[in-house]
C-alpha cells in the first residue's frame, strides 16, 4: 500500500545466482541512497534448474512489509526461456521495465507498453572470462543501464567484494561489458 517503494522481481533458475545478483544490487543501492532495502527470496526448497524468483524492494524509508512483490516496477530475467515458460511478467506496472538476458534484440519482444532492455549476457560474460552460463553478475550491468538506480563504480566494487577469491575482476568485467552492450527498446 506504500507508494514510495521501488519493487524489482528477479527471475532465474535454481543455481543461476539470481539471489546473489539481487543481493549485490541491494548492497549497492543501500550505499547510494536507499536506506530501506529488503530482499525476499523464494521461500522453500530450491532445486537446480527450476524457476525461482526473488523480490527486491528499495525505498528512501524503512520497509516493514516483507511480503513478496505483487506489482513490480522492474522485472529482471536471467534466462529468456523463462519468458516463454510462465507468466513471469505478471503484475508488472504499466510502463514497467523488463531486463532480460537474451540473444535477441529488444524489438523481438512485444510486451504491451513495457520497456525491454536486452543483452546477450551469456555471450558477454563468457567473453569477459567467466565460465559458460555464469550470468548473474553480467545482468547487473544491464539492470544498471536500464534502471539508473545505482552507478557502475559502486556496483563493480560490490561485485568484487562479493566474489573475493572467485574471479572478482572477470565478474565485474562481465557487468561492465554487459552495461555497454545493453539495448533498450520496446514501449510500443
Amino acid at each position: 500500500m506504500k507508494r514510495d517503494i521501488i519493487e524489482i522481481r528477479w527471475h532465474g533458475r535454481g543455481g543461476q545466482g539470481a539471489i546473489t545478483a539481487a543481493k549485490i544490487v541491494a548492497k549497492a543501492t543501500f550505499e547510494t541512497g536507499f536506506p530501506g532495502v529488503v530482499m525476499v527470496p523464494t521461500f522453500g526448497t530450491e532445486r537446480r534448474g527450476a524457476p525461482v524468483f526473488t523480490s527486491l524492494k528499495l525505498s528512501r524509508e524503512r520497509i516493514y512489509d516483507l511480503s513478496p512483490i505483487e506489482y513490480p516496477d522492474i522485472i529482471v530475467v536471467l534466462d529468456h526461456l523463462l519468458l516463454e515458460e510462465g507468466d513471469i511478467i505478471k503484475g508488472l506496472k504499466p510502463g514497467g521495465l523488463i531486463v532480460v538476458n537474451t540473444p535477441r534484440p529488444p524489438q523481438a519482444y512485444s510486451f504491451n507498453g513495457m520497456v525491454v532492455a536486452a543483452a546477450d549476457v551469456t555471450h558477454l560474460a563468457n567473453k569477459a572470462g567467466l565460465p559458460q552460463g555464469v550470468v548473474n553478475t553480467g545482468i547487473i550491468g544491464a539492470f544498471a543501464k536500464a534502471s539508473n538506480l545505482s552507478d557502475m563504480d559502486t556496483l563493480t566494487r560490490v561485485i568484487e567484494e562479493e566474489f573475493r577469491g572467485r574471479k572478482p575482476k572477470e565478474n565485474a568485467g562481465s557487468a561492465i561489458e554487459t552495461y555497454e552492450h545493453t539495448v533498450i527498446g520496446g514501449l510500443q
Partner: peptide
C-alpha cells in the same frame, strides 16, 4: 523462519 531467517536487510 524465512520471513526473517532468509530475507536480507541492513
Amino acid at each position: 523462519g524465512y520471513l526473517l531467517s532468509h530475507t536480507y536487510m541492513p
